[in-house]
Design a protein around this nucleic acid. Structure first.
Length: 310
DNA sequence: AGCGAGCCCTGCGCGC
DNA sequence: TGCGCGCAGGGCTCGC
């Protein structure tokens, strides 16, 4: 469910609570939520209890918290979280009532804020937590938002930087679009090309750029590709500023509050409503076994195969 | 290489 | 009221 803006809202909420705090106890209520934890590296709980947390970091839709015994020690492992379709990370006062889909709870102690619970709730269990080794980034740059450290969890290393990351290479992404023979929406959703974009923001950015989801990425002119990348950044940034997109109680920040960007959607979920730009009726179509929402007038399929230079 | 299908899951809203 | 179906913000693996 959550895409970059929603995950960033969670990261930013987590940051002040976890930085400098120590994990005093861990409870796992649902072993399937540890699917991405490799037990060969050690038991999940054993590797967390007693550890100090030094930051809250995000790349794309992945979150992680570097672990170290005390200040000044270079972290070699991290607690990694992915929210999947329905994951939530909630900060709670000790003794609070359990969320309906509580899967994992961390008891933490912060030097200033005292004791807190971090509750990981996840209806569909597509999300996960894991303890993973940190490895150097390929480009030597900071691994993600929230830390200057060039260390990334091994299970996140194949994920591309996201478009709001200062280390994101526009040139490399645009070159990949030209090189690849694939539909543009598929490319936007390919987390190894660009991360953080999911079904909502892909549809919104394509609507804003007036591009059909199935257009071959290699047939987009450099100018059109740049416009699309700009629209991706704009929609992600705007959604972030509005606290993310919430359709229901499934997406909330660390305090359990919803975001407001659902009121700003132009295409996603707007089937049957008029296009805010031209008035034609927005339609929903199946693509990649998912729904795509588009304006049939503004976003016409492009049949030509040859490269364009508009 | 690219792509569709299948799988991992729970729960909601809808039509019958 | 109950049941079956389609649907949901993600991502990984397997074949062709």
């Amino acid at each position: 469910m959550p895409e970059l803006p929603e995950v960033e809202v969670v990261r930013a909420g987590l940051e002040p609570a976890v930085t400098g705090a120590t994990i005093s106890a861990v409870e796992v209520f649902e072993p399937r939520s540890l699917r991405r934890h490799d037990p060969a590296r050690g038991a999940f709980i054993d590797q967390l209890e007693g550890q100090r947390m030094s930051a809250a970091v995000r790349r794309g839709k992945f979150l992680w918290i570097p672990l170290g015994p005390d200040t000044g020690t270079v972290a070699t492992r991290a607690l990694v979280a992915h929210l999947g379709m329905s994951g939530q990370v909630l900060l709670r006062e000790p003794g609070s009532a359990d969320e309906p889909q509580l899967r994992i709870r961390l008891h933490i102690e912060h030097p200033e804020h005292g004791e807190l619970w971090i509750n990981f709730a996840d209806q569909r269990i597509f999300g996960s937590m894991a303890v993973d080794a940190l490895i150097p980034t390929r480009d030597g740059l900071p691994a993600g938002q929230g830390s200057a450290s060039p260390l990334v969890p091994s299970q996140v290393a194949h994920i591309a930087r996201d478009p709001l990351d200062p280390g994101f290479s526009d040139a490399a992404f645009l070159a990949a679009l030209r090189r690849k023979s694939t539909g543009i929406k598929r490319a936007l959703l390919d987390q190894t090309l660009v991360s953080g974009v999911g079904n909502i923001y892909a549809d919104e950015a394509l609507w804003a750029a007036r591009i059909h989801y199935a257009q071959q990425s290699s047939t987009l002119s450099p100018a059109r590709s740049k416009i699309l990348l700009r629209e991706v950044r704009l929609v992600l940034a705007k959604a972030l500023a509005e606290g993310g997109t919430s359709f229901d109680a499934q997406y909330v920040n660390v305090n359990g509050d919803s975001g407001y960007f659902s009121h700003s959607l132009n295409a996603y979920g707007q089937q049957g409503k008029p296009c805010p730009r031209c008035g034609a009726t927005i339609v929903r179509e199946q693509f990649m076994n998912r729904s795509s929402h588009l304006c049939p007038r503004c976003q016409k399929p492009v049949r030509r195969i040859a490269s364009r230079t508009d």
